Amino acid sequence: MKQDKFKVLGGVVTFNPDTSRFTENLRTLVNQVDELYVFDNGSKNLGDIEKILNQFSTNVVLHKERKNAGIAYALKKIMEYANKRDFNWVLSVDQDSVLDSKLVDEYKKNILNYKNDDIGMLTCLIKDRNFEDKSVEKQKERLKEVPICITSAAFTNV
Rank of each mutant, 00 (worst) to 15 (best):
T123E: 12
G42R: 04
T151H: 05
D4N: 14
E106R: 08
D128W: 09
L112H: 03
E145P: 13
V30K: 00
I126F: 13
S97W: 01
E106K: 09
N157D: 04
R129D: 10
A69S: 14
F87M: 04
I71F: 03
N54H: 10
V146T: 09
K127M: 04
D48M: 12
L29H: 06
N130Q: 14
E141D: 15
K108C: 11
F39Y: 15
N68Q: 09
R129N: 07
H63G: 00
R85W: 01
F39A: 11
L36G: 00
R27A: 00
V8S: 03
V98W: 00
K51E: 11
L91A: 02
E106D: 06
E145F: 06
E50H: 07
D133S: 09
L9Q: 03
R142I: 12
I49V: 15
K64C: 04
R85Y: 01
N45Q: 04
N16R: 04
N41F: 01
K115A: 14
L29A: 07
E24T: 14
K115Q: 13
L99F: 03
V93M: 02
P17K: 08
V13F: 08
D34S: 08
N54Y: 07
L125C: 13
I150H: 04
W89V: 01
N83Y: 02
L75K: 12
Q32I: 03
V38W: 00
N16Y: 02
N88D: 14
W89M: 06
T28R: 07
F131A: 02
K144C: 11
E141F: 05
N130C: 06
I49T: 02
F6M: 08
K84N: 09
C149Y: 07
K67D: 15
L75A: 05
D117F: 06
R66H: 12
L53H: 01
N83H: 12
T19Q: 13
K109G: 10
S152N: 10
I150S: 11
L122G: 05
A72C: 07
E65M: 02
T58W: 03
I119V: 13
V12C: 06
E80W: 03
T156L: 06
S92Y: 09
I111V: 15
K64M: 08
E106V: 06
D86S: 13
T156W: 06
K2P: 13
E24P: 01
K109H: 14
E24F: 05
E65D: 11
L36F: 00
P17M: 11
N113I: 05
I71E: 12
Q139T: 15
D18A: 10
T151N: 13
T151E: 01
K144V: 11
L112K: 11
N68I: 00
G42D: 03
N110T: 12
D4H: 12
V38D: 00
N59T: 10
E35T: 08
N88A: 15
E137C: 04
N59H: 14
F131V: 04
N59V: 14
K134G: 07
N68A: 06
F56H: 05
F22K: 02
V146P: 03
K109W: 11
S92A: 12
L103Y: 03
N41R: 13
E137T: 14
C124Y: 13
A82K: 01
M1F: 09
K5M: 11
S101T: 09
N110C: 15
Y37F: 15
F22N: 03
M79Y: 12
K127W: 09
T28I: 09
G10A: 13
M79K: 13
E65T: 01
L29T: 02
T156D: 01
L112M: 12
V90M: 04
Q32V: 00
F22I: 04
